[in-house]
Amino acid sequence: MQTLSTIGFDADDTLWQNEHFFRLTERHFTELLVDYAEPEHLAARLLDAEKRNLAHYGFGIKGFTLSMIETAIEVTDGKVPGDIIGRIVNAGREMLSHPIETLPHVHETLEALAADHTLVLITKGDLFDQERKLAQSGLGEFFDAVEIVSDKSPATYARAFSRHGDGPERAMMVGNSLRSDVIPAIEAGGWGTYVPHDLTWDYERADEPKNGSPRFFKIASLAELKPLIDRL
């Protein structure tokens, strides 16, 4: 670990709030269709649609909006009123313009680490939306490179850390998703630091590495990241 040279950061719910806006929109969605299905049933149907459509639409707000429309059509047997479809579209449009709320300790942590490490932002989702959020966050100056990818796998991290650093063996990935940020980075030969967020999409849930994996770390907030790296 004395040779750690590159640190990758997830964006959504690691650097700024994201899932919070999805939850608010999902609540509004269930209210729109309350006459057709119970909220819990709608939420389950929507999650199924989202997972089913990832291969077609990818991650992000646009795919989420299309999945809401598809679910509305399904639960109403094709009889969903046009005005409800319009309100779903408007809800998705509002999500694409919500203000960016950075999480605690982000700015000072990035500033402290940027002095001695190559910082790479590795995020998945819609290209335009992720670029918008990064620009509005004011955090772009701290990153040496930005990778907006369709999904995160061991191969994704191997390529990113080889392209922008000294390979995954000298890199650490930091994020709030065990499934997307931490586990595949470790499988690529790197290190993974898990920073839990209060809200996590069900798709992103996974079990923590067992048997005291020496490449896995868990911290309560980004305030603990610089001290962790200093100790290593």
Results as ranks from 00 to 15, higher is better:
80 V>Q: 06
165 G>N: 07
95 M>W: 14
134 L>Q: 03
152 K>W: 12
99 P>V: 09
126 D>W: 03
113 L>C: 06
137 S>N: 00
148 I>S: 04
171 A>H: 05
168 P>M: 02
129 D>T: 02
112 A>N: 09
161 F>A: 08
129 D>L: 01
137 S>Q: 03
143 F>M: 02
81 P>R: 11
156 T>E: 06
168 P>D: 00
123 T>M: 10
172 M>H: 07
134 L>T: 02
127 L>Q: 05
144 D>C: 02
134 L>Y: 05
81 P>N: 15
104 P>G: 13
116 D>L: 14
107 H>L: 15
107 H>R: 14
149 V>E: 04
99 P>L: 11
90 N>E: 12
151 D>N: 14
148 I>G: 01
115 A>R: 10
107 H>C: 09
115 A>T: 05
125 G>V: 02
173 M>Y: 04
125 G>N: 03
123 T>P: 00
99 P>H: 08
128 F>E: 00
81 P>I: 14
149 V>R: 03
147 E>W: 12
131 E>Q: 13
133 K>C: 02
90 N>C: 10
148 I>N: 00
84 I>P: 04
144 D>R: 03
89 V>L: 10
84 I>F: 09
155 A>F: 07
167 G>E: 01
156 T>L: 07
106 V>I: 15
150 S>C: 02
120 V>M: 07
98 H>R: 11
87 R>A: 14
171 A>D: 01
137 S>K: 02
81 P>L: 15
151 D>T: 14
128 F>A: 11
170 R>V: 06
140 G>V: 04
171 A>E: 01
115 A>M: 12
79 K>Y: 13
99 P>S: 15
158 A>P: 00
173 M>T: 06
157 Y>D: 04
98 H>I: 13
95 M>G: 05
92 G>E: 01
162 S>V: 02
100 I>S: 14
110 L>P: 00
153 S>K: 03
86 G>P: 05
101 E>V: 15
93 R>P: 06
173 M>G: 04
126 D>H: 12
109 T>V: 11
123 T>Q: 05
122 I>W: 00
121 L>F: 08
81 P>D: 14
98 H>L: 12
120 V>A: 03
83 D>F: 15
140 G>K: 10
115 A>H: 07
87 R>C: 14
131 E>R: 15
97 S>A: 15
145 A>F: 11
138 G>C: 08
123 T>E: 01
159 R>Q: 06
151 D>W: 11
159 R>G: 11
158 A>Q: 00
115 A>K: 07
167 G>T: 01
124 K>Q: 10
96 L>T: 07
150 S>D: 01
126 D>P: 06
144 D>M: 10
157 Y>C: 04
152 K>H: 11
152 K>D: 08
89 V>T: 14
125 G>I: 04
114 A>L: 00
112 A>I: 08
133 K>W: 04
111 E>H: 15
120 V>H: 05
115 A>V: 12
124 K>E: 06
126 D>V: 09
85 I>V: 13
166 D>L: 07
161 F>M: 09
117 H>I: 06
162 S>T: 15
148 I>T: 08
121 L>I: 00
114 A>I: 03
86 G>H: 07
112 A>V: 08
